[in-house]
Amino acid sequence: MNFGLTQEQEMVVQTVRDFVESEIYPHEDLVERTGEVPPDLGADIKRKCLELGFYGCNFPEELGGAGLDPLTFTLVERELGRGSMGLTVFFGRPSGILMACEGEQRERYLLPAIRGEKVDALAMTEPDAGSDVRGMKCSARRDGSDFIVNGTKHFISHADLADFVILFAATGEEQTAKGPKKKITAFLVDRGTPGFEIRKGYSSLSHRGYHNSILTFTDCRLPATQVLGEVDHGFDIANEWLSGTRLTVAATCVGRARRVFDLALPYAAERKQFGKPIGANQGVSFKLADMITEIDAADLLTLSAAWRVGEGLDANREVASAKLYASEMLARVTDEAIQIFGGMGLMDDLPIGRFWRDARVERIWDGTSEIQRHIISRDLLRPFGA
């Protein structure tokens, strides 16, 4: 791995950072105060992203995307991590899982998503099936050449903006050496399909303006043409997608941590107590040293994992390590930043408290820290037959 960025990568980083600072930062207070993104503001961010040529940048050029490799795309996500997720969601990055679209699905879902004409959302988590994805109860049973879907999904990010969802549902069961295991199939489901309802989700502590929704399916009939990939093989495409989203979480955590540090460092150098800058005190200066060391370590771990993905190397453990370490690093960095700012760190006048609050969800979604440790330890022990 070359630790230096290419000239093109440097340009991408600077372009996205400039975009976040000029188009995202100015609106963050509004989103924090109201918990909403005005539709015209979201549309404006999307339009500017399209004009910049970055919409769908994680897709191949021949499909209309920017064709960024995994490492460069991770750099994009890192810079977007500096801004409010309620706003950066409009800097469109459709689910990579849509690459599994075939035939007419490409014209109805894949290409419109890349062009910004349609927005997708992933529907996997259920009230009784979070980390235990195989325990999902939402089912799709065959009825002739169709499928009838019944069940509920929740915590579905930005489904309120979606034109269609990528639904994962149980379509059967198979016997394995470890007992019965559900077969999972992925479906493409349009908003407005009879029997499919998108409802307002929970009021979340983290990421105001970035909404979650509850999806209900009541005898929702889907033709076989809506199957994404192969019947009973939804996990084959889900596993590839989950790797990408975990890298995104790691990268955005690094970006957010750097923004917090960029606020804490000058404050420590300028804020005076007892006649000298607080940064001159070892109790504060050592915090800064630990913070930047952890940020750099998480950054390199994340970029290394992205490089492995781009090289076609096995990166399951490395991606899990990056997600685990970066998300837990962000919690520590934001907490220490509040300590450096003191009481002001908890006030709405500064964004530090928001970053601290937002950081909490990163250790939960896209695989909890416990799941990441399970993936890592399983990968280490598997060669020994354990």
Rank of each mutant, 00 (worst) to 15 (best):
E104V: 12
F187H: 02
I214L: 09
A100L: 08
S204V: 10
I198G: 08
R93E: 03
K183H: 13
T125W: 07
V189L: 12
T193V: 10
N150S: 03
H207M: 07
A113F: 00
S95H: 15
R93K: 12
R106A: 04
E126C: 04
K153G: 04
E102G: 02
E197P: 14
G116M: 01
C138E: 00
L80V: 08
D190L: 11
G172C: 13
G151S: 00
D143E: 14
R93Q: 02
K182L: 01
G179Y: 03
H158W: 04
R134Q: 14
R141S: 07
A129E: 11
K153L: 13
T88M: 09
G96D: 03
T193M: 04
A169T: 10
G195W: 10
K137I: 10
Q105R: 08
F90M: 15
K200F: 07
A100E: 09
G209V: 11
D128F: 12
G201H: 02
T171W: 05
K181T: 03
S95I: 12
S206E: 10
K200C: 06
A100N: 12
A162G: 09
V189F: 02
V119H: 07
I156K: 03
S203H: 15
N212E: 12
F196E: 03
G86T: 11
I97L: 14
S95E: 12
H211D: 07
G103K: 09
S139P: 01
K118S: 04
A100P: 05
T152R: 15
A170M: 08
P112R: 07
H158T: 14
M124D: 03
R93M: 05
V133P: 00
E174Q: 15
G81K: 06
R141Y: 01
M124Q: 02
G103V: 05
I97C: 09
A113Q: 01
I156N: 11
V189Y: 05
T125F: 12
A162L: 04
S131Y: 14
C101H: 00
T185H: 07
C101Q: 08
G179A: 15
L167K: 13
A129Y: 05
K183A: 06
R208H: 11
V76T: 12
E107Q: 12
K182W: 14
D132F: 07
K200A: 14
I184E: 06
K178F: 12
R141W: 10
A162P: 02
S213P: 03
G135Y: 15
V149F: 05
R106Y: 08
F164P: 01
G172T: 11
R78F: 06
G144T: 13
S95L: 15
K118V: 01
